[in-house]
């Protein structure tokens, strides 16, 4: 099991949710997981229903069996200051640099620099050990940028190479790449059973593979319950509407004669069944595309009540049952 788990996905597929559920799942049975946010939008805080996260690792949830989930929202500017402090012992000069806008400058001027700082921080957490020589975190889960940008984001070496050919940033990028391309890392992609996200997932996997980054699993999120099966759908096509009206009437929904309560339900119910059938066919098609990718596939249910903290634990349990940890 890789210790750095990177979670990406098309916008709107719920990758932050899946990342958080994954952290909870991995932390079960006394493990420690760090959930890292890199896009500065406080999605983790919202999900865990706490106040905005500072740039500091703090415990955010307890997993079943005594595990712990820590969270960290990485701020690239502060990460750079940290970094300068570490290498140059800047002290107060660091603050002066910040005041002058130099930090903002440096993180903005070199697109790759920002990414190195973000991935670098995550890699540092992966490698960190406590006094006893035990890893500080058993797992680090990163809520990463979306599928369209993930390969570029992780492939910091190429990004930075053109800009910083030497110097500490260059070395940092090299070190980060060693972790990212190793077995220590797995990049998961979150998708929905819809055409566009599935297509993006396939493209993203191709890009990751081209960059020699380790692709992990495909997580299908928000899978709707299968309320009608193949046989039902076949029956829907052939059933006389009077039979359905009668059955609805038996169920206590009014008269089956024409114009009766049950009879009036038949058309709308059949129409909804028709929509369901259409979606069912589409989903089956997308599922087969995903299966063809040759990666472990996980499905997470759509939560009827919308996403909340309880739902997050539910998804974590689901992931554990599917053998993710």
């Amino acid at each position: 099991m890789s210790r750095l788990q990177v979670v990406s996905g098309k916008g709107g597929t719920g990758k932050t949710t899946v990342a958080a559920a994954l952290a909870l799942a991995l932390a079960t049975e006394g493990k420690r997981a760090l959930l890292v946010e890199v896009e500065g939008r406080q999605g983790i805080a919202q999900l865990f229903e706490t106040e905005a996260l500072p740039y500091e690792e703090r415990k955010i949830a307890v997993a079943p069996g005594g595990g712990e989930v820590y969270a960290l929202a990485i701020d690239p500017e502060l990460a750079l200051l940290d970094y300068l402090q570490m290498f140059y012992k800047l002290g107060g000069a660091g603050r002066a640099l910040k005041k002058l806008g130099a930090i903002d400058f440096a993180t903005t001027v070199a697109p790759g620099l920002r990414d190195v700082l973000l991935t670098g921080k995550a890699c540092e957490a992966v490698r960190r050990k406590d006094k006893t020589g035990r890893f500080a975190y058993d797992y680090v889960v990163m809520d990463a940028p979306p599928t369209g940008r993930i390969a570029r984001f992780l492939n910091v070496n190429d990004e930075v190479a053109g800009l910083a050919k030497i110097g500490p940033i260059h070395n940092q990028a090299q070190a980060v790449m060693r972790v990212l391309k190793s077995k220590e890392t797995a990049v998961h992609l979150v998708t929905l059973l819809e055409e566009m996200p599935v297509q993006e997932t396939a493209d993203g996997i191709a890009e990751l593979r081209a960059a020699k980054l380790p692709v992990g699993r495909v997580m299908v999120n928000m899978v709707r319950p299968a309320l009608l099966d193949e046989a039902d759908l076949e029956l829907v096509r052939s059933i006389p509407r009077t039979a359905l009206a009668k059955s609805l009437s038996t169920a206590g929904l009014g008269g089956a004669r024409r114009g009766g309560g049950a009879d009036r339900l038949v058309d709308p119910l059949l129409e909804q069944a028709g929509e369901y059938a259409e979606r069912y066919a589409l989903e089956r098609e997308q599922r087969s595309v995903l299966t063809g990718l040759g990666l472990p596939l996980h499905e997470l249910p759509l939560l009827a009540e919308g996403m909340d903290l309880a739902g997050l634990y539910e998804l974590a349990t689901e992931l554990r049952q599917q053998g993710i940890s």
Partner: peptide
């Protein structure tokens, strides 16, 4: 066959309940 119709009807009703929950949300 009646049983199958009954099961289908129940399925359609659950589908409808699902839709109504979605609508409400």
């Amino acid at each position: 066959a009646d049983g199958a119709v009954g099961q289908l009807t129940a399925g359609l009703l659950r589908l409808h309940a699902d839709r109504m929950h979605l609508l409400a949300r």
